[in-house]
């Protein structure tokens, strides 16, 4: 069985982004870019399923600018077998990405798609669910444990208040939460090997998908700043401040 793993190129999670002075967006020029951390967990999970003999092939897909090739190479260094770049310079929003992934899935015929639950740039948390809806497949989002057997997936999910386990039919979309696994570090030999793995490029038009954005960003602003308060000397002073100054006790 084949597993498709979408990967997104985002500003590295260690970078603190700055809002541009003209309010048109955040400044990502000359900023370190990496694979979205949740997508890394998705690649790791797919590769583990292949190593366990459950999956036969892991295909990484990325949608975006030409530089997303690096993200695909990173996925292949973890262990994905090949990569597909859906190349465009248009700003892609989750619905457009879901449509592109649906078109790729129609061609590739995966049994499972494992996505990150959200990208750490737009924090939208939509793409996996949208892909599942467009394909008419079940979904299991925010997965912390995934088991495949008898043509079904058993997925433990993180929900408000605890955990739930779903049994879903395949094909399906699973999205990863933090505790699904801890992605491995790619070794140098595997990074070298990844450079030789196949990487195909297609354009959205070849997939018959209109990727025009539906939302326009009018303004991006800094959130209101919270200034550091005061150090208190001891517990008694803290309680006094909370009672008489902040009036929250």
């Amino acid at each position: 069985m084949k597993i498709l793993v979408p990967v997104k190129r985002v500003v590295d999670y260690n970078v603190k982004v700055r809002v541009k002075a003209d309010g048109s967006g955040v400044d990502i020029a000359n900023v370190k870019m990496s694979m979205n951390p949740f997508d890394e967990i998705a690649v790791e999970e797919a590769v583990r399923l292949k190593e366990a003999g459950v999956a036969t092939e892991v295909v990484a897909v990325s949608c975006g600018v030409a530089a997303c090739q690096e993200t695909l190479r990173a996925a292949m260094a973890i262990g994905a077998d090949r990569g597909i770049l859906v190349e465009t310079d248009v700003e892609l929003q989750p619905l457009a990405v879901a449509k592109l992934l649906k078109a790729v899935a129609d061609k590739e015929g995966p049994t499972l798609v494992i996505c990150g639950k959200q990208a750490i740039d737009d924090d939208a948390n939509q793409t996996g669910q949208m892909l599942a809806a467009l394909a008419g497949w079940p979904q299991a989002t925010f997965a912390s444990k995934l088991t495949l057997s008898d043509g079904k997936a058993s997925v433990m999910r993180e929900i408000d208040g605890g955990l739930e386990t779903l049994s879903i039919q395949l094909p399906a979309v699973v999205t990863t939460d933090l505790r699904l696994n801890e992605p491995r570090y790619a070794t140098l030999p595997n990074i070298m090997k990844a450079k030789k793995k196949p990487l195909d490029t297609v354009k959205p038009a070849e997939l018959g998908v209109d990727v025009a954005p539906r939302l326009s960003t009018l303004k991006v602003a800094e959130p209101p700043k919270r200034s550091a308060g005061v150090r208190v000397a001891d517990v008694a002073q803290l309680v006094d401040k909370l009672k008489n100054e902040a009036k929250v006790l």
Partner: peptide
């Protein structure tokens, strides 16, 4: 924008062919 809402609503948006505005 709870775990239930985040899970379900993007399916609605995709089926209606509209963007979702999250959170």
């Amino acid at each position: 924008a709870s775990s239930a809402g985040k899970n379900m609503l993007p399916r609605v948006a995709a089926q209606l062919d509209v963007a979702q505005i999250s959170d």
